[in-house]
Simulated assay, not measured.
Amino acid sequence: MAETEWPWQYDFPPFFTIQPHLETQNKQISAWQSLILCFFKNNKSYILDIREAQNSPLFNNSKINRKLPQDGILKILEHLHKSGHAEPCDKSKNSQLHYRWFIYWHTLDEWASMIYDWAQGNGMINTVCTLYELVSGDNTVNEEFYGLDMGILMKALRTLEMQKKAEIIMFDDNEGVKFL
């Protein structure tokens, strides 16, 4: 895990309580969103489980003995969802509380664009690539999508499929993608 540089708010106790004044709350939520996205990017993490979140240093500042409550975490996740930076892992309509969330430090459109730009730049158009090659191959080691969660990769590739820039295919019991 990478060392996190905490913003000044992280040591400010009211930061861990969702503020009632709307303007202050909006600034606070914006600061939390930036912090969450930076934290997940630095740690190459992709899933947040609300039930375990308060054990994470992200939401638990032991130095000032403060934790962001679960309802505060959920409020921030809902804002991240509106901006395309988070999505519940469980798409069930019956669940009133989604516990596990994908965190997209890049939106799905941004991930899709990065992957397609890589494919174009490396002469992979009209070529089939395995999903493993994309996220673990020698040709992608220096790419930001190297090590990307397979669930997020599939969502990004489906975005490319909808844009008619890729086709997800099955071959020899493997999943792959053909860039168009």
Results as ranks from 00 to 15, higher is better:
residue 1 M to D: 09
residue 1 M to Y: 08
residue 3 E to Y: 13
residue 6 W to S: 05
residue 6 W to G: 07
residue 8 W to R: 11
residue 14 P to K: 01
residue 15 F to L: 15
residue 15 F to V: 15
residue 15 F to R: 14
residue 16 F to C: 15
residue 17 T to C: 13
residue 18 I to N: 09
residue 18 I to H: 10
residue 20 P to T: 10
residue 20 P to R: 14
residue 22 L to I: 05
residue 24 T to Q: 06
residue 25 Q to N: 15
residue 25 Q to P: 07
residue 27 K to S: 12
residue 29 I to S: 03
residue 36 I to M: 03
residue 36 I to L: 04
residue 37 L to S: 03
residue 37 L to T: 03
residue 37 L to F: 06
residue 39 F to L: 11
residue 40 F to A: 14
residue 41 K to E: 11
residue 42 N to E: 12
residue 43 N to C: 07
residue 43 N to G: 08
residue 43 N to V: 10
residue 46 Y to M: 12
residue 46 Y to E: 13
residue 46 Y to T: 13
residue 47 I to E: 07
residue 47 I to G: 06
residue 48 L to V: 13
residue 49 D to M: 04
residue 49 D to S: 04
residue 49 D to L: 07
residue 51 R to T: 15
residue 51 R to W: 15
residue 53 A to I: 04
residue 53 A to G: 08
residue 54 Q to Y: 13
residue 55 N to H: 14
residue 55 N to G: 13
residue 55 N to F: 14
residue 57 P to C: 15
residue 58 L to K: 10
residue 59 F to L: 14
residue 60 N to Y: 07
residue 60 N to C: 13
residue 62 S to P: 03
residue 63 K to T: 14
residue 69 P to H: 10
residue 69 P to N: 08
residue 71 D to N: 05
residue 73 I to A: 00
residue 76 I to N: 02
residue 77 L to M: 05
residue 77 L to E: 04
residue 78 E to D: 07
residue 78 E to Y: 08
residue 79 H to W: 02
residue 80 L to H: 04
residue 81 H to L: 12
residue 81 H to D: 03
residue 82 K to C: 01
residue 83 S to H: 05
residue 83 S to N: 04
residue 84 G to W: 04
residue 85 H to C: 02
residue 86 A to R: 02
residue 87 E to P: 03
residue 89 C to R: 02
residue 89 C to W: 00
residue 96 Q to Y: 03
residue 96 Q to R: 09
residue 96 Q to W: 04
residue 97 L to Y: 15
residue 98 H to A: 01
residue 99 Y to D: 00
residue 101 W to Y: 06
residue 103 I to P: 01
residue 103 I to D: 03
residue 103 I to V: 05
residue 106 H to C: 00
residue 111 W to V: 01
residue 111 W to L: 03
residue 113 S to T: 00
residue 114 M to W: 02
residue 115 I to V: 05
residue 115 I to H: 02
residue 116 Y to R: 00
residue 119 A to M: 05
residue 120 Q to F: 06
residue 120 Q to A: 02
residue 121 G to C: 03
residue 121 G to M: 02
residue 123 G to W: 08
residue 124 M to L: 12
residue 125 I to Q: 02
residue 125 I to W: 01
residue 126 N to Q: 13
residue 126 N to V: 09
residue 126 N to L: 12
residue 126 N to T: 07
residue 128 V to Y: 13
residue 128 V to D: 15
residue 128 V to C: 14
residue 130 T to P: 06
residue 131 L to G: 13
residue 131 L to E: 06
residue 131 L to Q: 11
residue 132 Y to K: 12
residue 134 L to G: 09
residue 134 L to N: 04
residue 135 V to Q: 06
residue 138 D to T: 15
residue 139 N to I: 15
residue 141 V to W: 01
residue 141 V to I: 00
residue 144 E to I: 11
residue 144 E to C: 10
residue 150 M to S: 14
residue 151 G to A: 08
residue 151 G to I: 06
residue 152 I to D: 03
residue 152 I to P: 00
residue 153 L to I: 04
residue 154 M to T: 08
residue 158 R to I: 13
residue 158 R to W: 07
residue 159 T to S: 13
residue 159 T to N: 12
residue 159 T to P: 10
residue 160 L to H: 09
residue 161 E to R: 09
residue 162 M to V: 05
residue 165 K to D: 05
residue 165 K to A: 05
residue 172 D to W: 10
residue 173 D to A: 15
residue 175 E to Q: 14
residue 177 V to I: 05
residue 178 K to Y: 02
residue 178 K to N: 00
residue 179 F to H: 01
residue 180 L to T: 00
